[in-house]
Design a protein around this nucleic acid. Structure first.
Length: 568
DNA sequence: ACTAAGTGCGCG
DNA sequence: AAAGCGCGCACTTAGT
């Protein structure tokens, strides 16, 4: 490698409509060499430099840069996304002062991008940054990271950027999706595809039956107010038409109504229209919005990628000669809580596959069901009901873990900010929140104002309580993803037939889906075992990275099969 | 005719 | 209108 000899390199390329696309190759401090290249030359230069020294490519947004490189068949190994890292470093409380906030480096909250392949979002090249501005922001971020006492924020920025790279790669590769299987499910559940407007046959039949049972043949079950009135007329006194309320009522209309709701959901959210719009060439290509949730979780835009109903997972099918390796973490969040709080008792309970059984063994509660309610209630801030009743029992058995979430809740209630393990900060309370709190402090404030203030304080406490756990779990997941990518890149290319996953992934095992604590890898069949090892090894590595020196089990449920259906 | 808010349900 | 967190999307209704 000639990396040490090469100067710090900046490539400045013209975007399609005259803006700038800038990539800085960072590395050890070296003289800066700026190279202007035309749009046509850009890909070739990136490829050459990547092969030469695998730098950490620094760009305004990987959402602009990565898809373009992938389309050219180029895959960069490391990157730094200035928009995403600006958001982290601006809001962190691990640094005083944090990075200066700048409008110019704040992601515009973006509209869904209907046509994958365009990259004019998030102020990509078209936003018109000057090179000096990008360089200055990069230097500001590097300076802030150098000042940090430990490497946590640096790790977080690297993981966040790796995540952004992976998100673009997964969109490019797509999730292999069988239109035939999907249509089979639709036909079986709903009947044939309706021509033009109108309900599918089985939905229409149910709607008619509901109308008869409620004595209103013009009733539209899709209208909650009318449905509620019709239910009341028929003597069904529910307060809303939600399914959890209906399911507690004993009346002949309940069954067809719940069935109607189930089918309506399938039809409107994942019916034929969804297939037409989102599945092309046997691939579902959702757009992931990395850093889209304040906790650091990903959001998605379009296609409801994060809400694929489990009943449709059967439509996820490997291509011939390929297989799907899926893995998810059992009870990630409480495991992360135990480790970040250094709670050895809870880590003991977490030993093995089922944390809830471990909680029972600890003696805190009597049954697995109770353990589940108690643990979820602890992380979400339950105060009443079954869950709220059980939470206090955990305080005596797991004082450190409970102390951590309780402290986070108190901070939030008082208007403070909390932080994940790697240093992502929670948002400050909004003006309206503070107004409500200060109004309650006025001498002439009524009891209603005080109740409102208490309510919103507790609400915020539940948010910050959950933030530290959800956010740190998201960090574990990012580290896992990055490590998976790294290990998959080390596998040889396949002898299996090439698949329709774009130039980079046609012959390589690749991440195809990610959802908070689970991944799906599309891999040549002969590499199934190697991929499974990679997923397990990556999980162990992520755990070591995030919780060095602390023993915590993070077991995976792993499946290898041709489809990603339940229990496959 | 168009938009914003409310409702309900899917996912973790 | 879940108790108890975080999301996205489709549909209806109320408001302009």
């Amino acid at each position: 490698m000639s990396a040490t000899a090469a100067p710090l390199h900046a490539i400045v390329g013209r975007g399609p409509d005259g803006g700038w696309l800038i990539a800085l190759c960072s590395g050890p401090a070296r003289p800066l060499e700026v190279e202007h290249v035309s749009d046509v030359e850009l890909a070739a230069r990136v490829r050459a430099i990547e092969e030469d020294c695998a730098p950490r490519w620094t760009v305004r947004s990987l959402r602009g840069f990565a898809p373009r490189m992938l389309a050219e068949g180029i895959r960069v190994r490391r990157a730094h996304d200035l928009l995403l890292c600006h958001a982290i470093l601006r809001d962190t409380i691990a640094l005083d002062p944090p990075l200066a906030s700048s409008e110019r480096w704040t992601r515009l909250d973006v509209v869904a991008e209907p046509q994958p392949g365009l990259f004019d979002i998030d102020g990509g090249p078209e936003r018109g940054d000057g090179f000096d501005e990008v360089l200055a922001q990069w230097q500001a971020q590097i300076a802030v990271l150098d000042r940090a006492r430990d490497g946590r924020l640096t790790l977080l920025c690297a993981a966040e950027s790796a995540g952004a790279l992976i998100a673009e790669e997964m969109t490019a590769a797509g999730l292999p999706w069988s239109v035939d299987v999907h249509e089979g499910i639709l036909r079986e559940q709903l009947g044939p595809r309706p021509q033009g407007i109108g309900r599918p046959r089985l939905m229409a039949q149910l709607a008619a039956r509901i109308g008869e049972l409620l004595d209103d043949t013009t009733l539209n079950p899709d209208s909650p107010p009318r449905l509620l009135r019709a239910l009341h007329r028929a003597g069904v006194f529910v307060e809303s038409t939600s399914k959890w309320q209906l399911s507690e009522i004993d009346h002949p209309v309940v069954e067809p109504l719940l069935e109607y709701k189930r089918l309506a959901r399938l039809f409107t959210a994942n019916g034929w229209t969804w297939l037409d719009e989102w599945v092309r060439d046997g691939r579902f290509r959702p757009v992931y919005v990395t850093g889209g949730v304040v906790t650091g979780r990903w959001a998605s835009s379009g296609g409801g990628a994060l809400q694929i109903p489990r009943q449709l997972r059967r439509a996820v099918r490997a291509d011939p000669g390929w297989t799907l390796v899926s893995a998810d973490v059992a009870q990630l969040e409480p495991r992360v809580l135990a480790a970040m709080a250094q709670d050895h008792a809870m880590a003991d309970a977490a030993r093995g596959r089922d944390l809830y059984e471990g909680v029972v063994r600890s003696g805190a509660v009597g049954s697995r069901e109770e353990a589940k309610y108690a643990v979820l209630g602890a992380m979400y801030g339950a105060t009443s009901g079954e869950s709220g009743r059980l939470v206090p029992r955990l305080r005596t058995v797991f004082p450190r873990a409970m102390g951590l979430v309780d402290a986070a809740a108190r901070t939030g209630e008082q208007g403070g900010v909390v932080s994940t393990l790697l240093g992502r900060g929670s948002p400050r309370p909004g003006d309206d929140w503070r107004l409500v709190q200060s109004q309650a402090g006025n001498p002439d404030a009524g009891s209603a104002a005080e109740a409102r203030a208490r309510g919103s304080a507790r609400e915020r406490g539940r948010f910050t309580r959950n933030f530290v756990v959800q956010g740190t779990a998201a960090e574990w997941a990012l580290l896992w993803l990055a490590e998976i990518r790294h290990r998959l890149m080390a596998l040889p290319t396949a002898s299996a037939p090439a698949v329709a996953s774009g130039p980079v992934f046609a012959s390589r095992a690749h991440l195809a889906f990610f959802l908070h604590d689970e991944v799906i890898v599309h891999a040549p069949s002969e590499q199934a075992d190697a991929v499974a090892d990679a997923l397990r090894g990556a999980a162990a590595a992520a755990t070591q990275r995030l919780f060095p020196g602390f023993a915590i089990d993070v077991p995976l449920d792993l499946h290898v099969s041709e489809d990603a259906g339940e229990g496959a």
